[in-house]
């Protein structure tokens, strides 16, 4: 038993000592572009970036409770600011992407120009990310409010826990349509499959997605290099290719 414990300890210490590794918490909407960016980053730098995707709110709770992440790519700008104020992040935050919302359906032809389908109401369920938890859900409810449809459509809401689950509800056809991130359905900057309406940015508050170096990444060269890479031309081209705006 003691030998086992020392073997485990040895493994842990060698893992920690192995330079050039970083663990990055990535908001669900950015998971695909982040993967693409991390691959290019690894090729170019020789560092290794491990991505963990999930809901930003969950990451907040985990980071405050000592989760082993060095970088956070959040879905909003509030969480990184809060982490900074509370001393869990360093003062390095910047906006890496501005999210675009899209009303999307897996069936071609359902969502038409200007989202007129919302007024016709020819659907049973509309999937929205939980506005209490997800910035894209917040933006979706703001959009519906701006269109004057929020109250009328509320009974048909099905709430995804994050934007990934919301996309899953629509992609499986269980909800005829829903508000998802453009990055989830974009191919080369346009909507790939199904039908969609890219919501004009003025219908909701901008979805500013901030990145920040976390307190435990302060001395991690790979983490800092990743953030620099994220600001670079190669990464910006990838981000734009997925339909995000850039500041």
């Amino acid at each position: 038993m003691q030998r086992l414990i020392s073997a485990v300890l040895l493994c842990l210490t060698t893992m920690a000592a192995h330079a050039g590794d970083t663990r990055i918490a990535v908001a669900a909407n950015f998971s695909v572009p982040a993967k693409r960016i991390a691959e290019a980053f690894e090729r170019a730098s020789g560092h290794k970036a491990t991505l963990v995707t999930g809901a930003t709110g969950k990451f907040y709770a985990q980071i405050v409770n000592g989760a082993p992440f060095e970088v956070l790519l959040a879905a909003d700008d509030e969480t990184p600011a809060k982490l900074e104020k509370e001393g869990h992040a360093t003062g390095t935050r910047f906006t890496y992407a501005i999210g675009r919302l899209v009303l999307w359906s897996a069936s071609p032809g359902l969502v038409d120009i200007d989202g007129a389908v919302l007024k016709r109401g020819t659907f049973r369920h509309i999937a929205v990310a939980n506005p209490r938890l997800a910035p894209y859900g917040q933006a979706a409810t703001e959009t519906l409010a701006a269109l004057g449809l929020a109250e009328a459509l509320r009974p048909r809401f099905v709430l995804g826990e994050n934007i990934a689950q919301t996309h899953q509800f629509v992609a499986s056809g269980n909800a005829e349509l829903g508000f998802v991130a453009l990055a989830q359905v974009a191919k080369d900057g346009r909507i790939g499959e199904g039908s969609g309406w890219i919501v004009p940015a003025q219908l909701h508050q901008p979805i500013r997605q901030d990145a920040v170096l976390l307190a435990r990444g302060r001395d991690n060269a790979a983490a800092k290099a990743f953030l620099e890479w994220l600001k670079g031309d190669d990464a910006r081209a990838t981000i734009r290719g997925f339909g995000y705006d850039l500041p």
């Binding site: 939980n130 809401f157 099905v158 709430l159 826990e161 689950q165 509800f169 909800a175």
Partner: peptide, 8 residues
């Protein structure tokens, strides 16, 4: 429930 409920 989380996966099929839709939190209604």
């Amino acid at each position: 429930v989380l996966m099929i409920g839709g939190n209604i």
